[in-house]
């Protein structure tokens, strides 16, 4: 699948934003501190930025509002509805934190749950597609949720360190979440790499009972929308290397840095926490890029790869 930069940016940015908003909603940070107030605003900006970026790949973005109508059947529509609805508790929470320095537990908890639900809807857009076997697994939403939670906890560790309040709880939770997220992702990758294809050129053409089916001639010489959109395979040969780099950058190093945050002094902790977030974000972008680039679409059975 073609890894569209707008979608990669959207899923990583909004994932981090929802993660941070959920942590804020759970009340893990002191709402009266300046950095927590900024965190509320930052979460909203990341979510809104992600959503705006997701409209960039549309052919007719002026009609994007229509995407809120088909929540009965479409995960994409559900995501849109949940994203809009989640702004309500998040904005109320942010308002009370920024203006009054107060944490509202009920609104916060509702917001946190809705953040999770929105990320789940995003993941299900991919996980519900049978035509893309790599994504069509319950592990996909688990990975998305854990990556979002881990990102939010890493960001909240930075916020806690900056505000000078105790950051140990956030750092420990972040450490656990990062490990859990990459463990889930490793299981996802293991499944992908041992996958027996659901559909083959034989089942796609129905000619398997005659013999082995091989593409002899494409319908046309050049690429078309389908081969550009679903036939992406540049750097698939580096997939294994890239996935190891993603685990190192986004998993191993941030975990080590969280240990530094827990054990180190305040300046070291701050540097370590910020570096952890930056590296985690890089690892996540690589992971998200691979999520698309590695996924093989069933239609490619008709195009010989």
């Amino acid at each position: 699948m073609h890894p569209a930069p707008s979608i990669i940016l959207f899923t990583t940015l909004s994932g981090l934003g929802y993660g941070l908003a959920a942590v804020l909603g759970l009340g893990l940070l002191d709402a009266s501190t300046l950095s927590a107030k900024l965190a509320h605003v930052a979460a909203l900006v990341m979510i809104a930025g992600g959503l705006l970026s997701s409209t960039l790949h549309l052919g007719n973005p002026q009609r994007a509002w229509r995407a809120l109508s088909q929540w009965r059947s479409s995960w994409l529509s559900r995501e849109g509805v949940m994203a809009m609805a989640t702004f309500v508790p998040l904005t109320i929470s942010a308002w009370f934190a920024v203006i009054e320095g107060r944490y509202l537990p009920v609104v916060g908890l509702v917001g946190a749950v809705m953040c999770g639900a929105t990320v789940y809807c995003t993941a299900m857009i991919y996980a519900s597609l049978r035509s893309i076997q790599a994504w069509n697994t319950g592990l996909t939403p688990i990975c998305y949720l854990l990556f979002s939670a881990a990102g939010g906890l890493l960001l909240s560790t930075v916020v806690a360190v900056i505000s000078g309040s105790s950051s140990d709880l956030c750092a420990v939770l972040a450490l656990v979440a990062v490990i859990a997220a990459w463990a889930a992702k490793s299981a996802w990758w293991k499944r992908l790499r041992t996958l027996v294809p659901l559909s083959t050129p034989e089942s796609a053409t129905g000619l398997g009972n005659i013999g082995h089916v091989r593409l002899f001639e494409r319908p046309h010489m050049n690429d078309n929308y389908l081969t550009r959109e679903m036939g992406f395979k540049i750097a698939r040969k580096h997939a294994l290397k890239l996935s190891k780099m993603a685990i190192l950058l986004g998993g191993v190093v941030p975990v080590a840095l969280m240990l530094v945050v827990i054990l180190g002094g305040s300046t070291t902790a701050m540097l370590a926490a910020v570096l952890a977030v930056l590296l985690y974000a890089c690892g996540l972008v690589v992971e998200r890029w691979l999520f698309f680039a590695e996924a093989r679409h069933a239609v490619m059975n008709y195009y010989g790869d």
């Binding site: 699948m1 790949h57 549309l58 052919g59 007719n60 973005p61 009609r63 994007a64 229509r66 995407a67 479409s74 994409l76 857009i125 597609l129 049978r130 035509s131 893309i132 559909s199 796609a204 078309n224 929308y225 389908l226 959109e229 679903m230 679409h297 069933a298 239609v299 008709y302």
Partner: peptide, 27 residues
């Protein structure tokens, strides 16, 4: 008139029956 050109239907189709028109931005 309702299509936003998100391309998800083309992704969901295993047969490659849908193609986005790049000029009109609709499926």
């Amino acid at each position: 008139s309702k299509c936003i050109g998100c391309g998800l239907c083309a992704w969901s189709c295993a047969y490659g029956a849908r193609e986005m028109d790049l000029a009109a931005g609709v499926m």
